[in-house]
Simulated scan of single mutants.
Amino acid sequence: MPYPCEYNFTKSKSMALKPTIYKLNIALADLNNQHYPTLHLTMAQHPSETSERMLVRMLAFCRHSHADTHELMRFTKGLSATDEPDIWHKGLDDALNYWIDIGEPSFDRMKKACRLSKETYLYSFNSKSAVWWKQNQEQFTKLPIKVFSFDWTDIQSLAKHVGRTMNWSITISDESFFISTNETQIEVPWVSLL
Rank of each mutant, 00 (worst) to 15 (best):
N33I: 03
T20G: 06
L31Y: 13
D30S: 04
D68L: 11
T50M: 01
C62F: 01
D108P: 05
D83A: 06
D93P: 01
S65T: 00
H70T: 13
M15V: 12
T38N: 14
E104C: 15
H70P: 08
K18N: 10
N33Q: 15
E49K: 02
A60Q: 06
M43I: 14
T76K: 03
L55S: 07
W99V: 04
F107N: 05
T69K: 11
I26N: 08
S80C: 04
Y22T: 07
H35A: 14
T50H: 01
A113M: 00
P47M: 00
A81Q: 07
L55V: 02
L31G: 10
Y98S: 01
D86V: 03
C114S: 09
H64A: 05
D30K: 02
I102F: 05
Q45I: 03
A95F: 08
E49N: 01
F75T: 04
H89V: 09
D101L: 02
C114W: 11
A113W: 03
A60Y: 02
L92P: 06
A60F: 00
H35C: 15
F61D: 00
S14L: 15
P37L: 01
G91S: 14
P47T: 02
H40Q: 15
R74C: 13
F75D: 12
C62V: 04
Y98K: 03
G91Q: 12
D30G: 04
R109I: 10
P37N: 00
A67L: 12
A67I: 08
Y22F: 13
R57W: 03
I87Q: 00
D101F: 00
G78D: 07
Q34W: 11
A95Q: 10
G78I: 02
A60V: 04
D68V: 07
H64D: 07
A67H: 14
V56P: 00
